[in-house]
Amino acid sequence: MSRYQEVKDLVDSLEADFTKFYENGNKAAGTRVRTGMQAIKNLAQEIRTEVTAIKNEAK
């Protein structure tokens, strides 16, 4: 479950940058949002791989 917490923490850490970008038009915050979203994507892929491996061990 620690991986789930990592995803939640990462999403929470981007909240301020989302606000700065969408409400204030801060382009630097947009770059941070894009970088953070890429990190979330990579983490999600790692979790998918891990879940598949665990699921296949059970067979």
Rank of each mutant, 00 (worst) to 15 (best):
K59G: 03
F18W: 13
K41D: 11
V7K: 00
A28F: 08
A29E: 05
A53S: 14
K55F: 13
I47C: 04
E6R: 04
V11P: 06
A58H: 03
A53Y: 07
Q38Y: 09
Q45W: 02
E57Q: 11
I40A: 13
I40C: 10
R48Q: 13
Y4F: 07
D9N: 09
S13C: 02
E6N: 06
E6I: 04
V51A: 10
N26P: 12
S2H: 07
M1Y: 00
N42V: 09
L14V: 09
M1D: 01
V7I: 04
R32K: 14
T19E: 03
M37C: 07
R48L: 15
E46K: 14
A16W: 06
T52W: 01
A39W: 07
E57S: 08
T35M: 09
A53N: 11
R34F: 01
T35L: 14
V11H: 09
T19S: 03
I54C: 10
Q38L: 11
M1H: 00
N26E: 15
F21P: 03
I54L: 09
L10N: 07
Y4A: 05
V7P: 00
Q38M: 09
N42E: 14
S13I: 02
T49V: 07
G30A: 03
N26T: 12
A28Q: 08
G30T: 04
K8P: 00
N26W: 10
I47P: 06
R48P: 10
Y22W: 15
D9F: 03
I47H: 04
K8H: 04
D17C: 03
M37L: 14
I47K: 05
L14Q: 10
D17W: 01
D9P: 01
R34W: 02
A29P: 06
R34H: 02
D9T: 04
R34T: 04
S13Q: 06
T31Y: 10
N56E: 09
N26S: 11
R32H: 14
I54E: 13
K8G: 01
L43V: 01
K27V: 07
S13H: 01
A39R: 11
